[in-house]
């Protein structure tokens, strides 16, 4: 299977007087999981939204397979984004969400026959627990033909049992898709990532050893 490559370069973003992102460089290939760590307010979500194309900025250079895109999300089958907050419509049950989102019978079937989703098909997104909702959202996105998934805190507020389930789900698709994951549950991120990047003072620092996270002040020494 041919590899696809996402390259993010020269991303700059300013909020008022604060330069949040300064010439950020990031890359990801299909079959790779990149863990993006950083303190609260370091700009992780902003960076993901800039890559996705929904947050405008003065400077960015997003390339997928050497083609430059201004708003990659508007192109079919390139990338999808799991936002921190839920993104499912609240006015229709999951059954209808699936029918609305996918036309392909096979994808609808896969979702509707999933053992964790099937019992909830008549429920509305708000009736699900955080973990159940996250699982559904994730599977909905994973079944798309997008090469890359930007996952913004997929484990946040999720019970440990569901964290494992979500982790397993990601592993099932890890060979064919590229993931950029950001989450404060850094133990899980460390476990599933092939490569780690720390967003620190506006730029990306490649992390080769987990201990470097303590050197950069992301975690206290002795906590890893």
């Amino acid at each position: 299977m041919s590899k696809h490559r996402l390259q993010v370069d020269s991303v700059r973003y300013r909020i008022g007087e604060r330069q949040l992102l300064t010439d950020v460089y990031l890359s990801c290939e299909t079959g790779e999981t990149v863990g993006l760590l950083g303190r609260n307010g370091s700009g992780k979500t902003t960076l993901l939204q800039i890559i996705f194309g929904t947050r405008p900025t003065v400077s960015k250079h997003i390339k997928i397979n050497d083609q430059v895109y201004q708003a990659p999300y508007q192109q079919p089958d390139l990338l999808t984004y799991l936002p921190q907050q839920g993104f499912l419509p609240k006015d229709i049950p999951l059954n209808s969400v699936i029918d609305l989102y996918y036309r392909e019978a096979q994808k609808r079937k896969t979702l509707k026959e999933d053992e964790r989703i099937q019992p909830h098909l008549r429920k509305y997104a708000e009736e699900l627990s955080k973990g159940e909702r996250r699982y559904f959202e994730l599977l909905l996105l994973l079944l798309s033909d997008a090469k890359f998934l930007l996952l913004d805190e997929p484990f946040s507020g999720v019970a440990p049992l569901h964290v494992e389930v979500i982790q397993e789900l990601l592993m099932q698709y890890a060979a064919t898709k590229g993931f950029i994951i950001t989450d404060h549950d850094y133990h899980t991120v460390l476990k599933i990532s092939d490569r780690l990047i720390l967003l620190h003072e506006g730029s990306c620092k490649p992390i080769s050893h987990a201990e470097e996270l303590a050197d950069w002040g992301y975690v206290p020494y002795g906590k890893l």
Partner: peptide
């Protein structure tokens, strides 16, 4: 009330 739901449409290539 539903700002987050825009991502439902974005993920299918629809802009705001």
């Amino acid at each position: 009330r539903h700002a987050g739901q825009y991502y439902f449409y974005y993920n299918r290539g629809l802009s705001k």
